[in-house]
């Protein structure tokens, strides 16, 4: 019973949502689901947030290694909660939008959250350089192909690519790097994208059917049969 009901719910909800697409009176069900999901996600946050508080609280309590940083995490968490839920220093008071300019919540966002996020994102510039270096030591034929294609596309987007191959005569214009880059983007790149996309869709269909038919139940924490 404990294991059958969840499988029945999955099958029923999945089947109904597939069929809903073909019946106009029911076609909004997908949107309704996302509203339900948004509501469930907030309730679930009590579990996630609770876990955050418990793990860091435990570290502080046991004076474990780096417990000071856990204290900082919890302080940041509760500060943001208080600033947002009670709309502290919000010029429009409790009725105003939580992100109103001048509110503590927005200030914490602008001064802390935003620069931290942008800097983390900017690290990608360094990582993309080290990954390029790794690709440069192409281990096999596939990696070499990846590298050559990447190199042509990269050069094709820079003035260097234009100057380097401008001498090639017009009848072999495809060999000029900017043209070659465009050709790669519109021919082999497109073909690869399509094969990947069709493959992904078939994988999704098969996986979803395994879930709806109850063949795949790992997510329930139950083993098959």
């Amino acid at each position: 019973m404990k294991r059958k009901i969840p499988v029945i719910i999955t099958s029923l909800v999945g089947t109904v949502l597939i069929l809903s697409v073909f019946f106009p009176p029911a076609e909004r069900m997908g949107e309704d689901f996302s509203i339900f999901f948004d509501i469930i996600a907030v309730f679930a946050f009590f579990l996630g947030g609770g876990n955050l508080v418990r793990i860091h609280g435990n570290k502080i309590y046991k004076k474990a290694r780096d417990w000071g940083f856990s204290a900082v995490t919890l302080a940041g968490f509760f500060l943001m909660l208080a600033a947002g839920l009670f709309k502290i220093a919000n010029p429009g008071g409790i009725a105003a939008d939580v992100t109103a300019q001048g509110s503590l919540f927005q200030m914490l966002y602008d001064w802390i959250f935003n620069p931290l996020g942008a800097s983390m994102y900017a690290l990608l510039a360094f990582y993309v350089a080290s990954a390029s270096y790794r690709a440069f030591r192409a281990k096999n034929k596939e990696a070499t192909i990846l590298l050559i294609a990447a190199f042509i596309i990269l050069l094709g987007r820079t003035p260097l690519g234009v100057y380097a191959t401008a001498w090639i005569p017009e009848q072999f214009s495809l060999m000029q790097i900017p043209n070659l880059a465009i050709w790669i983007m519109t021919a082999p790149n497109l073909a690869g994208q399509r094969a990947i996309m069709i493959g992904i869709a078939l994988g999704v269909i098969s996986m979803s059917l395994r879930l709806i038919l109850g063949v795949e139940r790992t997510y329930l924490g139950t083993d098959n049969e």
């Binding site: 493959g199 992904i200 078939l202 269909i205 098969s206 059917l209 395994r210 795949e216």
Partner: peptide
């Protein structure tokens, strides 16, 4: 790559009925 992610759990389960679904998606291809 893409489709292999979805096929992976069926493949690793080694259960015939899960592997059957992989055969089915090949029909789609």
């Amino acid at each position: 790559i893409g489709e292999e992610l979805f096929a992976a759990s069926a493949y690793l389960s080694n259960e015939p009925k899960q592997l059957g679904s992989l055969k089915g998606q090949d029909v789609g291809k």
